[in-house]
Simulated scan of single mutants.
Amino acid sequence: MSAALLPKPQMRGLLASRLRKHIVVAFLFSMGCAAGYKFGVAEPRKRAYAEFYKNYDAMKEFEAMRKAGVFESAPPK
């Protein structure tokens, strides 16, 4: 009598039905991580590089490093 009260377990198509749900969840999670990285890491990094190179003078840096003795081929003056 008690066996009639319990629902029968799903035997066919169980893997396919679970995979469908898990693939959707994994896709949404990966898109969320990608968007979080893009807006949390990549975009601020791009802005920081753009701000740094806006006023960067390569020759001035080179002269400062040369005076400090960083280069062996360009002796300090």
Rank of each mutant, 00 (worst) to 15 (best):
A26K: 06
R12K: 13
R20G: 12
S30A: 14
V24C: 06
R66E: 01
P75Y: 02
M1L: 12
F52I: 01
V24F: 08
F52A: 08
F39S: 02
V25C: 00
A48N: 06
G40K: 03
A35F: 06
V41D: 07
A34T: 14
A3E: 10
E72R: 14
Y37I: 01
K60E: 15
K8S: 15
C33W: 13
V24A: 15
K77C: 00
A34G: 07
V25I: 07
F62G: 07
M1V: 08
S17H: 05
G40C: 03
F27T: 13
M59W: 12
A50C: 04
K77Y: 03
L19V: 06
P9M: 05
K38E: 03
S30D: 10
L19Q: 13
R18C: 11
F29C: 12
C33T: 08
P76Y: 01
P9Y: 04
L28P: 00
A50M: 07
M11T: 13
A26H: 01
R66C: 01
F71A: 07
E72D: 13
R66A: 14
P75L: 09
P9T: 08
M59S: 07
K54S: 14
A68F: 09
F29Y: 10
L14C: 03
F52Q: 11
G69E: 02
A50S: 14
K8A: 15
Y53D: 06
I23W: 05
G32F: 10
Y37N: 01
P75S: 06
Y49G: 00
A42F: 09
Y37K: 03
S17V: 11
K46W: 04
L28H: 03
E72A: 13
R12G: 02
C33Y: 03
A48P: 01
R20T: 13
A4G: 08
H22Y: 09
S30R: 10
G40F: 01
M31T: 09
F27G: 07
P44Q: 05
A50Y: 00
M65G: 00
V70L: 11
P76E: 05
S73H: 10
H22K: 14
P44N: 07
F62Q: 05
P7T: 08
S2D: 11
K67P: 00
P44K: 02
A48M: 04
E63F: 02
F71C: 05
G69Y: 05
K46G: 05
R45I: 03
G40E: 00
Y56I: 02
G32W: 01
A34I: 06
G69F: 04
Y56K: 06
A48F: 04
C33R: 07
K60S: 15
V41E: 05
M31D: 00
R47H: 11
L19C: 10
P76H: 08
P9A: 11
A64L: 09
Y56A: 15
F39I: 01
A74M: 14
S2W: 04
E72F: 03
